[in-house]
């Protein structure tokens, strides 16, 4: 249900998510990424329940964890650098032959965390933002792009929802994620219904848009709505921007703080408690909703 007490305007959330995405992209230190992930999780749990498709994002994050596992395995099997050898595969095996090192595993893990952080920002974005309000702020000449974006953001959760329905139906028949990766029939069992369902939904949407005069005039109207700025909005925007500036300052003055490379010898990533505390500024939306 919508809880108006917790509502903040779309621009506030847009700034918040942009800062979170910026931090996720610019950070390689796994400890700070974990802090960011925990904060995003707290925001997601605080504000979830506004859309029927919220539940889908947890599956999406699980999928992100799956990709992280693939990233770790792929990096470990193909990058044979590093001094801490876990085991060796005979070099007669092409590509994967050589030392499997802890450094390569750690590197894959660090990059996987960046990926999950980005997915989490996306999940939060979809949960908290009333995208239509954002799109109503764009200039009239960008209306078509704004509609396209609105459709995309509506379509992604709908597709994920359909994917869950199909996955469950096929699972009851005996097809699992494992079997779907094993053979062509398994893969088809999941992807053929998904693609066709997606096409059917796209077709209905296109019909619906045509039936409501989409594209009939170059001078379409855009109804503007004034944004409501509350204390919550102001504090969230201020804390996000302050944190972004602090982050940039540290990144420029002490580039090693947010960097991490396990090569050539695996070592624990560095951690500065004060910098860690600065991340807590991103918790303001959660604190303000208590």
């Amino acid at each position: 249900m919508v809880n108006n007490k917790k509502d903040m305007n779309a621009v506030t959330w847009l700034i918040y998510c942009a800062v979170a995405a910026f931090i996720a992209v610019m950070t390689r230190n796994p400890l700070y990424l974990v802090i960011l992930l925990l904060i995003l999780w707290a925001v997601f749990k605080t504000f979830e329940g506004r859309s029927a498709t919220d539940g889908i994002w947890s599956s999406f994050i699980r999928l992100g964890v799956g990709f992280m596992a693939i990233s770790i395995v792929f990096n470990a099997m193909t990058a044979h650098y590093g001094r801490t050898v876990i085991f060796r595969i005979p070099v007669s095996f092409p590509v994967i032959g050589g030392s499997i090192t802890a450094e390569a595993v750690a590197y894959g893990l660090a990059y996987g965390l960046v990926f999950i952080s980005m997915v989490s920002v996306f999940a939060v974005f979809n949960t908290v933002i009333d995208l239509s309000s954002v799109l109503r702020l764009v200039p009239g000449f960008m209306r078509q792009s704004a509609i396209l974006m609105s459709i995309t953001f509506n379509f992604i959760p709908q597709t994920l929802y359909a994917a869950t329905e199909i996955k469950e139906a096929q699972k009851m028949r005996g097809y699992t994620m494992k079997s779907s990766l094993r053979d062509i029939a398994g893969t088809a069992s999941l992807f053929v219904p998904l693609i066709i369902t997606g096409l059917e939904k796209s077709c209905t949407l296109a019909e619906s848009m045509e039936s409501r005069a989409y594209g009939s005039t170059a001078k379409a109207t855009v109804i503007r709505r004034p944004l409501d700025w509350t204390l919550r909005d102001i504090l969230t925007v201020a804390s996000s921007l302050i944190f972004a500036m602090v982050f940039i300052y540290i990144k420029v003055s002490h580039p090693s703080v947010f960097a991490y490379s396990p090569y050539p010898q695996l070592a624990a990533p560095g951690f500065d408690p004060l910098t860690g505390m600065a991340f807590l500024l991103m918790l303001v939306p959660v604190v303000m909703s208590l």
């Binding site: 239509s132 709908q158 949407l205 619906s208 409501r212 005069a213 109207t221 855009v222």
Partner: peptide, 24 residues
């Protein structure tokens, strides 16, 4: 569900009228 372009009810009701270019 598939025919909705917007997430919010009011925006969805406005969609066709905006396309016609009617005054706000």
């Amino acid at each position: 569900t598939s025919q909705a372009v917007n997430k919010k009810v009011e925006d969805e009701l406005a969609f066709g009228l905006e396309n016609l270019g009617l005054p706000p």
